[in-house]
Computed example of a mutant assay.
Amino acid sequence: MGHEAKPNLSRASPSFRLRNPSLNTLRLRRIFDVFDSNGDGVITPRELSRALHQLGLEADPSELDSTVRSHIRPGKPGLEFEDFVSLHRSLGDSLFGAESGSESESESESDMKEAFKVFDEDGDGFISAVELQMVLGKLGLQEGKEMDSVRQMICSVDRDRDGRVDFGEFKEMMQRVSVPSA
């Protein structure tokens, strides 16, 4: 039997892993939600295999199954979000190398744009209170349940007072945020 050409995962886009930990968590949450095809909060090896296939990333089924199962906690049917983060960290370190502490200005700008897209779900160039509430809710944060809190968050960075956050306002806010390293 001939071997199918497999994508070279070591040449994956460096933007797969964002350098800001809080932005990376948001992006991973979105990826997790996409891979969790039935929305039960768990990614089974079958769901992950199907998602990778749809992305054009064929993986050896037994290797994928073994790798995924090594991150599933005993008694669970699949990866919960924390397990998915652990799997990503494990694969990320082996595929992309350890994250370096230095980043260029263009890398930082690129990360900011990627993060902004996570929040700007309708792609209109602005983050509305509804969009912010949806993302916070997906992250399981209490603020996502309280629209008043979400509106206050928007107002705290909304310099032009139009009730929504544009990329410049988002970028300024993110540059003020300091997240302890995990």
Rank of each mutant, 00 (worst) to 15 (best):
E99R: 13
E131V: 01
D60W: 12
S178N: 09
E172Y: 05
V165G: 03
L48G: 01
S100G: 14
S100R: 09
E103H: 13
E4K: 13
D160H: 08
H71N: 10
I31Y: 09
R69K: 15
R30I: 05
S94I: 12
P7D: 13
G2I: 13
G92F: 00
T25N: 07
G144W: 11
S49E: 08
V85S: 04
F32L: 01
F119L: 07
K113V: 09
E99L: 09
S102I: 04
D93K: 12
I127A: 03
S13R: 10
R176K: 15
R17W: 00
N24R: 13
R27I: 05
T44C: 03
S108P: 01
R46S: 12
G97P: 01
S22R: 10
P180R: 13
E63D: 12
D83Y: 08
G92E: 00
L136P: 00
D148T: 02
M153W: 03
D162P: 07
S15N: 09
L141Q: 15
E172A: 14
S62W: 10
D60I: 06
N8W: 03
S10Y: 07
K117Q: 10
F35N: 01
T67C: 10
E169H: 08
S156F: 04
E114L: 09
M174S: 09
V130W: 07
A59H: 11
R159P: 01
T67S: 06
K171D: 13
M134S: 09
D166E: 03
P21W: 00
L23F: 09
L48I: 00
L64A: 02
G39P: 05
S66N: 08
D33I: 04
G75N: 11
S15A: 13
I72A: 02
K76F: 13
S104F: 01
S181E: 12
S156R: 15
V135G: 01
D83H: 08
L57S: 07
E4M: 15
R159T: 15
A51E: 01
G168P: 01
F84H: 04
S178G: 07
A12C: 10
G78L: 05
V157R: 04
L91S: 06
L9C: 11
I154L: 08
Q175T: 06
D148N: 15
F96D: 06
R176V: 04
R29I: 01
F35Q: 01
P45S: 02
V179K: 05
R161T: 12
E103R: 15
T25K: 10
L48V: 00
R11N: 12
D40F: 13
P77Q: 08
S66L: 07
S70R: 14
G78H: 10
I31D: 00
P14H: 11
N8V: 10
A12N: 05
